[in-house]
């Protein structure tokens, strides 16, 4: 293996987990964009998505069609879950201090974790393999079919999201609400509906990310949402929280940093390396890589 091949392989490794971080980071950043809430239950939505996907894969034969159904089911299920969480836990507290909502979010997170533990048990669950374990392409660098699926699905969803935000009436309403909820209301936008849709879209992306995560690492557990959620949150901050391309870039960058840190320095130090870069970025760009330089509102 030459140095260039080694680097390329490490790049692919980092990009794989980075794509999953990016999908989850989008939900954090979109919700923060419209209501300035760090939704700490978002990591748990990702975990519920992984279990929804597992449920479908246990019912259907392990095939590409089964995976597509699992992705759709997890996306839809998590979208509904996200809307429900917003309606039940956050909307009643819309005028309450920000800290109350934050604590509620942590409460929702514990509720979902324990609910899934009681439903599925505390053990690791095995996700059946749905793609041949071979690889694509020749040479010393290997990409598994599963990695290709992760790249393809993430890329498709990110492009679709960009189109939705910039080309549709809903996207325009979301951007307007993010800029100024009061003005948006004044021009006739149903702000509560927009907030609800934002939760639905962000949660659907997390749900899809959960299924991909489960398929790639073949085990899921009720506490998987915690660390992955924290990493995705970091990615959102790294890219500039509230900024959608920033979350995508932040996720991919965090994955790459972890991968290269583990590959070239030491696995023990990979989180230290990734978070040291986060601190450095925030020192020089406190609003993240793509964050706006000035405050949007007083």
């Amino acid at each position: 293996m030459t140095a260039a091949e080694l680097f390329l392989q490490q790049f692919i490794n980092g990009l794989t987990i980075g794509s999953v971080y990016a999908l989850i980071a989008l939900g954090y950043t979109m919700v923060y964009g419209v209501i300035q809430l760090i939704n700490f239950a978002h990591g748990e939505v990702f975990m519920v998505g992984a279990y929804l996907g597992l449920m479908v894969l246990l019912l259907l034969p392990p095939s590409p069609g089964g995976v597509l159904t699992a992705l759709l089911a997890a996306g839809t299920g998590c979208a509904l879950l996200g809307m429900l969480i917003e309606r039940v836990a956050y909307r009643p507290l819309r005028r309450a201090p920000k800290l109350s909502v934050l604590i509620t979010a942590i409460g929702v997170s514990f509720f979902l974790q324990n609910a899934m533990m009681l439903l599925w048990g505390a053990q690791d669950r095995y996700v059946p393999a749905c793609f041949s374990p071979g690889r694509l392409g020749g040479g010393a660098v290997s990409i598994t079919p599963m990695q290709a699926v992760i790249f393809a699905v993430s890329l498709f969803l990110m492009i679709a999201l960009q189109l939705l935000i910039h080309r549709t009436p809903l996207g325009r309403a979301m951007r307007a609400t993010a800029q100024d909820p009061l003005a948006a209301r004044l021009v006739g936008i149903r702000v509560e509906g927009v907030v609800s849709s934002t939760f639905a879209i962000g949660s659907a992306l997390a749900g899809v990310g959960g299924v991909l995560f489960g398929l790639h690492y073949s085990t899921i557990n009720f506490h998987d949402g915690y660390l992955v959620g924290l990493k995705a949150f970091t990615a959102a901050v790294l890219g500039g929280i509230g900024n959608i391309p920033g979350a995508m870039a932040g996720g991919l960058l965090l994955g790459l940093l972890e991968g290269l840190g583990a590959g070239y320095l030491s696995t023990q130090w990979k989180n230290v390396f990734a978070f040291a870069v986060l601190v450095l970025v925030l020192l020089f760009r406190p609003r993240g890589l793509l964050g706006e330089r000035v405050a949007e509102r007083a």
Partner: peptide, 22 residues
């Protein structure tokens, strides 16, 4: 001789390095 953390799931960067050492 390297350590990994319990609960981690992605060891491909480490294994890629191991592969390059043969």
């Amino acid at each position: 001789h390297e350590g990994i953390a319990q609960g981690e799931k992605d060891f491909s960067p480490l294994l890629t390095k191991v592969k390059s050492l043969g």
